[in-house]
Design a protein around this nucleic acid. Structure first.
Length: 153
DNA sequence: GCCAACGTTGGC
DNA sequence: GCCAACGTTGGC
């Protein structure tokens, strides 16, 4: 089983939105980056756990935990002309983009802020701290996972 | 709202 | 296949 960090702008989709969905489950659509697409297709598997990271807000940080409940499958919003994520180059027969389904597990009692993550020497390798990192999904090591869950208690 | 970083596009 | 222009991300 692997650990991940999924970014989302809470103004678009927050951890509270996920909690309020039917079955507290939603598809994680809209990824339009090949590196992340490949992870969704090949590496992110049912049963994996992920941090829900709130980005582009004040303050940014990790809000809680969700679980991958469905392996990668074609992102159907790519062939919906009404969608913000419409991509005419993706079709049902040759899908270009993939998504997984995620389920709400818990919201931390408090946000673990980016600032707090920066101050932890053992979290310095996390991709979200690297300047210019724009990947919306990144791997988390077991050690990083344990440290952050510890901070949340 | 600014701007650095960087992925993507498209002309050649 | 190069690379300049452009668009997007995301912290501040």
């Amino acid at each position: 089983m692997n650990y991940w960090l999924f970014k989302s702008e809470p103004s678009a989709f927050s951890i509270d939105d996920l909690r309020q969905r039917p079955k507290q489950t939603e598809h994680w659509d809209g990824v339009r980056n090949y590196q992340v697409r490949n992870q969704l297709h090949n590496d992110i598997k049912q049963g994996d756990l992920a941090f829900f990271y709130h980005s582009s807000c004040a303050p940014p940080g990790i809000a809680g935990i969700m679980q991958v409940v469905k392996n990668g499958y074609p992102d159907f919003t790519a062939w919906d002309k009404q969608s913000d994520h419409y991509d005419p180059k993706s079709t049902p027969t040759t899908p270009r983009w993939y998504m997984v389904d995620v389920k709400f597990i818990e919201k931390f009692p408090r946000l673990i802020t980016l600032d707090e993550i920066k101050r932890q020497p053992k979290l310095k390798q996390m991709p979200i701290l690297k300047k210019g990192n724009r990947l919306s999904i990144t791997p988390v090591t077991t050690q990083e996972w344990k440290i952050i869950v510890g901070l949340a208690k």
